[in-house]
Amino acid sequence: MLLKRFMMKVAGLPSCEQVNSFLALYMDDELAEKDRSAFERHLRRCKNCSAYFYQYRTTVELVQQEREHDVALPDELIEHTLAFLRQSAAYAD
């Protein structure tokens, strides 16, 4: 592990921990070019970070698919809400 860290350092690459802290920004394409390049070079050399990134990205994709499994809206949701408002004393022009 120490040797791997040393090799990364010599190559001017971030540690696994730094790469982990970049994941959300990388996914949002908000990393500065220099950091993005270092992130990707680290990933190519590190099996753990590469596996972890794949799993992190897959998790986000699975969660995003929840959107497609749309929540069924109760019948007349809007009509009932409007009726609720109109009978409330606090709802007046």
Binding site: S15, E17, Q18, C46, A51, Q55
Partner: peptide, 21 residues
């Protein structure tokens, strides 16, 4: 959360199986 020792992953990250997925 994942844990790190001297900045590197503690232990190894086991791969996910695309087939299993």
């Amino acid at each position: 959360q994942p844990t790190f020792t001297k900045g590197m992953f503690s232990g190894s990250v086991d791969a996910w199986s695309p087939l299993q997925m």
